[in-house]
Simulated assay, not measured.
Amino acid sequence: MEKYRFEKEFEIKASPRMLYPYLLNPEGLSQWFADDVKVLPDGNYLFEWEGERHSARVVSRRLNKHVKFVFTDSGDDEIKANFVEFFLDYNDIIGSTFLKVVDFSEMDDEEELHKLWDGLVQSLKEIVGG
């Protein structure tokens, strides 16, 4: 199946230091990104959405800047596997952080992806007050 790369940037009135735990920690991710998130003994993550479970691993991260999850159950090698990536960039002038989301998966309905991510990030903004 063909993969689609979706990218969108969101402004959030919160510091990268405040936002980063919501992008990496299971407790934070469970509040806005997935129904449930667990870290397994091997260090991999188990994400659950509407009863479906998907395993992933963090392949890169930089404190308060970046996190990339590769979904290991997408059946492909790492280069072609589904992934979600988060980038944080703080703008001193306006006092906002910009969250850039990169979603690489089979989902190719751009309108639906905009709605999905707009809703997810709105939930995150409500949690952090941004």
Rank of each mutant, 00 (worst) to 15 (best):
K3D: 00
P21C: 12
K38E: 15
Y45L: 13
G75A: 09
L113S: 01
E27A: 14
K68F: 08
W49M: 13
V37T: 11
K8F: 09
V84L: 15
G130P: 13
T72F: 06
P16D: 06
S55I: 04
Q31K: 15
F104L: 11
E9F: 00
V59D: 07
G43Q: 09
S55F: 08
E85A: 05
R62K: 15
K8L: 05
Y22H: 15
V39E: 15
V121P: 08
L24D: 05
N64E: 12
R62D: 06
V37Y: 04
G43P: 13
H114Y: 13
E7Q: 11
V39M: 15
R61F: 10
F10Q: 04
P26F: 05
I79D: 13
N64Y: 13
I79C: 00
V121H: 02
L29Q: 10
G51F: 07
A81Q: 07
N64L: 02
S30L: 10
L63Q: 11
E78Y: 06
S123L: 13
K125V: 15
P26I: 03
E111K: 07
K3A: 09
D92W: 07
D108R: 12
L124C: 02
V70W: 02
G75D: 09
K100Y: 01
F86H: 02
E52T: 12
S55W: 04
P26Q: 03
V67M: 12
S30G: 11
E78P: 02
E7M: 11
V84N: 15
P26Y: 07
I94K: 03
F98A: 01
S96V: 15
R17N: 03
D103A: 03
V121Q: 02
K125C: 09
D35V: 05
G119M: 04
F6K: 02
G129C: 14
L99Q: 07
S74L: 10
V84A: 14
T97D: 12
K125G: 04
P26C: 07
F86T: 00
G51S: 10
K65S: 10
I79F: 12
S123W: 05
L29P: 04
L113T: 00
W117E: 00
F10M: 05
P41N: 01
V70M: 11
L19S: 08
A56Q: 07
A14H: 08
E9S: 15
